[in-house]
């Protein structure tokens, strides 16, 4: 059953952005598009032909493919409760983070490949934010390694159990940090607004200004996948081991749904930060994850 998480994440990715958009439209009192509309847009993009800038080179054509491939690769590591992911070994979350970084690397250089100053701006911001968000993830995984004594996704999520009040606190804080990491990595509010119309205030959107047709479709789908992937990680906090699949699959679906609704709600009620406030905001999560680490140290009594 190792492919279960892969299949479920692929399925979720079809609806995820749709749910976000639907939430936003309901909250703002509009009727809004159907849940499948983002997927339809992606399919339409995939069927279209492309326009390439004269400035671009092979890098620009390669980048969307690499981006999608790295995200698919990362998904293979995500376990499902007791079931391991397709690939699992000690330290697999390091592989997970670095393989995502590979995709980011290519997207950033592809943006610079166009020679546009707008896309350079987006690339610069993306590089900065992803650099700042990296430590939070690693500290979090370090805390779980300390808590459970395992160093792989499957080991950690398999051994995670809620015993004391501190562990509940840690679980909630960790989910919170993961939701924010997902928001930052997917360039959503409050760090980046996907619906903004001014190129100067964009981060991710401005990087892909010159992508069109099939490549744009790949990038858009990759974003959906990324959301579903982070949703699956968060769901794993709640898939306590021992549950049968007819419990865990509904829990998984519910967590993904709640996650999408939360994202939609945040986007409805908050505004984007000023660009120069973003680093502080992101660094805050490094300190929250350090707090989690300290909490775990307290719990396990291993302060040396």
């Amino acid at each position: 059953m190792r492919v279960l998480s892969l299949v479920l994440i692929l399925l979720t990715s079809l609806f995820f952005t749709g749910i976000i958009i639907r939430t936003k439209s309901i909250l703002s009192g509009r009727k809004g598009p159907g849940i499948m509309q983002p997927m339809k847009d992606i399919l339409r993009s995939l069927r279209k032909s492309s326009v390439f800038s004269e400035t671009t080179s092979l890098i620009f054509q390669l980048a969307p493919t690499v981006y999608l491939a790295t995200i698919l690769m990362a998904i293979l590591f995500i376990p499902f409760g007791n079931d391991k992911g397709v690939i699992s070994f000690n330290g697999d979350f390091v592989f997970f983070a670095y393989v995502l970084a590979l995709g980011k690397f290519f997207m950033i250089i592809a943006a610079l490949d166009t020679g546009s100053s707008f896309e350079g701006m987006g690339a610069s911001r993306e590089a900065l934010y992803s650099m700042l968000v990296e430590p939070a993830f690693f500290i979090l995984m370090g805390s779980f390694a300390l808590l459970t004594g395992y160093t792989s996704f499957a080991g950690i999520f398999g051994a995670l159990h809620f015993g004391s009040y501190i562990s509940y606190g840690i679980g909630i804080l960790a989910s919170f940090v993961f939701i924010t990491i997902a928001l930052i990595e997917n360039s959503r509010l409050p760090v980046d607004d996907p619906k903004t119309h001014l190129e100067l205030t964009m981060v991710h959107e401005v990087m892909i200004l010159d992508n069109s047709g099939f490549d744009l479709g790949l990038i858009l789908y990759a974003t959906n996948l990324k959301f579903a992937m982070y949703g699956a990680i968060i769901a794993n906090f709640f898939l306590t081991p021992g549950y049968e699949w007819y419990y865990s699959i509904p829990i998984f679906t519910a967590v993904q749904l709640v996650f999408a609704v939360i994202v939609g709600t945040i986007e409805s009620f908050s505004a984007r930060f000023r660009m120069n406030h973003n680093p502080q905001f992101i660094l805050m999560f490094t300190s929250i994850s350090l707090l989690i680490f300290l909490g775990v140290l307290l719990m396990t009594g291993k302060i040396i």
Partner: peptide, 24 residues
């Protein structure tokens, strides 16, 4: 933390170096 930060910064540094020197 240091390794993660270093990785992120190296990514920033080399996207800059490669992007500005060879692309555009």
């Amino acid at each position: 933390v240091a390794l993660a930060l270093t990785g992120g910064l190296a990514l920033m540094c080399f996207t800059k170096a490669f992007g500005i020197i060879f692309l555009g």
